[in-house]
Amino acid sequence: MQDISVIILTFNEEKHIKRCVESLLAFTDKIFIVDSGSTDKTVEIAESLGAKVVQRPWVNYAIQFNYGIQHNPYNTTWLMRMDADEYVLPALAEEINQKLSGTAPEIGGMYIKRRVIFFDKWIRHGAYYPIWLLRIWRSGQGACEESWMDEHITLTSGKTIQMENDIVDHNLNNLTWWTQKHNLYAIREVIDLLNIKYNFRNFESVEPKFFGSQEQRTRFLKVKYASIPLFIRPIIYFIYRYIVRFGFLDGKQGFIWHFLQGFWYRFLVDAKVYEVYHRVGKDKKAIEKFFKDEFNKDLTK
């Protein structure tokens, strides 16, 4: 077992949690789960596999995950972030076993590629692979940024390296679940985009930088995306992904994925932005009040 503990956030993940935890047991038995009141067998399954589980009411992803970092019961040199619907490939587990203990002290974090499986199809194109994510970092040297959407782990010190093998994101829920989840995501995405313009609150986040890490480049492009007119930007983004970046090579599953995730979802976000402007205008205080009244979300905290 390596000197690493893994933090996972869960809520009703009985379809995924066994697969996730079992993939981790190839290199660690130190698995810490912060559950948000699951009503299915998530906790039972996780504890049967040796994971430690605590309950904490959901606030948002960053607060929940940082709670996991701060209350991690394992005193390990390294921490790792996993989502319940992800799993580690055997080749990555072996790579962690081979490299972790011998990593140079100046290395503070490790980037890992994530591959997305949709309708049992690996989405290889449309700029969707490889997606490099900082998933392993030294204890005390990383935290989850407190953005409304697309939260990344940020390092306070140390250099980074890239691992050769992958984490797999393969959600087993149906398409209705997927669309409902993304409808909820869209609200957070709206807040994140509006925050770029209105700066409702300041928080430590990834520095927008085109020639930086992937999350820095993603943040840079998001800032630029936010400046494009409503309803034009999802069209441009879909064309870029499906045509320019060869998303059409992913077949029928790829068309569904790139259309839903790359156009429908982005269009829905713009429609919700339009709704905000239509309902209360573009005054900052009026927008803050709208989200507090409609969604009980305080944009200043």
Rank of each mutant, 00 (worst) to 15 (best):
Y185N: 14
Y185A: 13
A186M: 13
A186G: 11
A186V: 10
I187M: 07
I187Q: 07
R188T: 09
R188S: 11
E189M: 05
E189V: 06
V190P: 01
V190N: 00
I191W: 01
I191H: 02
I191P: 01
I191Y: 04
D192P: 02
D192A: 13
D192W: 08
D192T: 10
L193T: 04
L193K: 02
L194W: 00
L194D: 01
L194K: 00
N195D: 15
N195Y: 03
N195I: 09
I196E: 13
I196Y: 09
I196M: 14
I196N: 03
K197C: 07
K197T: 03
K197H: 07
Y198M: 15
N199K: 13
N199H: 14
N199D: 11
N199I: 11
F200A: 03
F200C: 04
R201F: 00
R201D: 12
R201K: 12
R201N: 02
N202Q: 12
N202D: 13
N202L: 06
N202I: 00
N202R: 05
F203A: 11
F203Y: 15
F203L: 09
E204G: 08
E204W: 09
E204I: 10
S205N: 08
S205K: 08
S205Y: 04
V206Y: 00
V206S: 02
V206I: 10
V206P: 00
E207T: 14
P208N: 10
K209P: 04
K209Q: 13
K209V: 09
F210K: 08
F210N: 10
F211Y: 10
F211S: 13
G212Y: 04
S213W: 00
S213C: 13
S213Q: 05
Q214Y: 09
Q214E: 15
Q214I: 13
R217E: 08
R217I: 03
R217F: 03
T218N: 12
T218H: 13
R219P: 02
R219T: 03
F220T: 06
F220H: 04
F220C: 09
F220D: 05
L221N: 14
L221F: 15
L221R: 05
L221M: 13
K222R: 15
K222A: 12
K222V: 14
V223W: 03
V223P: 05
V223M: 15
K224P: 00
K224Q: 12
K224L: 07
Y225L: 06
Y225A: 02
Y225K: 02
Y225P: 04
A226N: 11
A226L: 05
S227N: 09
S227V: 10
S227C: 11
I228L: 09
I228M: 11
I228Q: 02
I228H: 02
P229V: 08
P229I: 14
P229W: 06
P229Q: 07
L230F: 08
F231K: 10
F231Q: 10
I232L: 15
I232V: 13
I232P: 06
R233V: 11
R233L: 08
P234F: 01
P234E: 01
I235C: 12
I235E: 06
I236Q: 07
I236T: 08
I236R: 06
Y237D: 02
Y237P: 03
F238Y: 06
F238H: 01
F238W: 06
F238P: 00
F238S: 00
I239P: 03
I239K: 01
I239Q: 07
Y240K: 14
Y240Q: 14
Y240P: 05
Y242E: 04
Y242R: 00
Y242H: 01
I243R: 10
I243P: 01
V244N: 14
V244Q: 12
